[in-house]
C-alpha cells in the first residue's frame, strides 16, 4: 500500500503523513498489528528529513494509531481504527473557540487574548525546560 506526499501542498509534510497513514488504517489497507517501515526507510523513500517522519510517528503514537515495540519496529495499534475517528485537532479547535467566546464575553480584547495565550505557552515551555 502506497502513500503520496505533495511537497507543494498547503498542509505541512508531517500532517500529510499522519493523514495518509490514518486513511490507510481507515480503508483497512493497513490492518491492526501490521508492521510499518522504519523512520529512516520512510524518510529516505519520501526524500524527507528523518525528524519530519519521526514527528508524524510521534503524533500517531500519541493518538494510539501506531505503537513502537522497541527494536522490533513500529506496528499499527490494535485499536487504531477506533482511534482514527477521534480528531484531536478538531477537539483542540473546539475547546479554544469555546474559551475565546467565554473570554470575549468577559470583555477581553482579541489582542489581550493573544498575548495571554502566548504568555501561557511561553511559561509552560519555560517550566518544561
Amino acid at each position: 500500500m502506497e502513500i503520496a506526499i505533495n511537497t507543494e501542498g498547503q498542509s505541512p509534510l508531517f500532517a500529510q503523513l499522519v493523514e495518509q497513514i490514518k486513511q490507510r488504517v481507515l480503508d483497512k489497507s493497513l490492518a491492526p498489528g501490521a508492521a510499518l517501515p522504519s523512520i529512516r526507510q520512510l524518510a529516505n523513500d519520501l526524500q524527507l528529513n528523518n525528524k519530519t517522519v519521526a514527528k508524524a510517528y510521534q503524533l500517531l503514537e500519541r493518538d494510539q494509531i501506531i505503537q513502537t515495540k522497541g527494536y522490533r519496529g513500529t506496528f499499527v495499534h490494535p485499536d487504531a481504527i477506533a482511534n482514527c475517528t477521534i480528531d484531536l485537532a478538531a477537539w483542540v479547535f473546539a475547546q479554544l473557540a469555546e474559551t475565546i467566546e467565554t473570554l470575549r464575553g468577559a470583555g477581553t480584547t482579541d489582542s489581550e487574548i493573544r498575548i495571554a495565550f502566548a504568555d501561557a505557552m511561553h511559561n509552560r515551555q519555560a517550566k518544561e525546560n
Binding site: 500500500m1 502506497e2 502513500i3 503520496a4 506526499i5 497513514i21 493497513l30 510499518l36 520512510l42 523513500d45
Partner: peptide
C-alpha cells in the same frame, strides 16, 4: 509528489 510503500 513523492510516493512510498508502507511495507517495511
Amino acid at each position: 509528489t513523492r510516493t512510498a510503500d508502507l511495507t517495511p
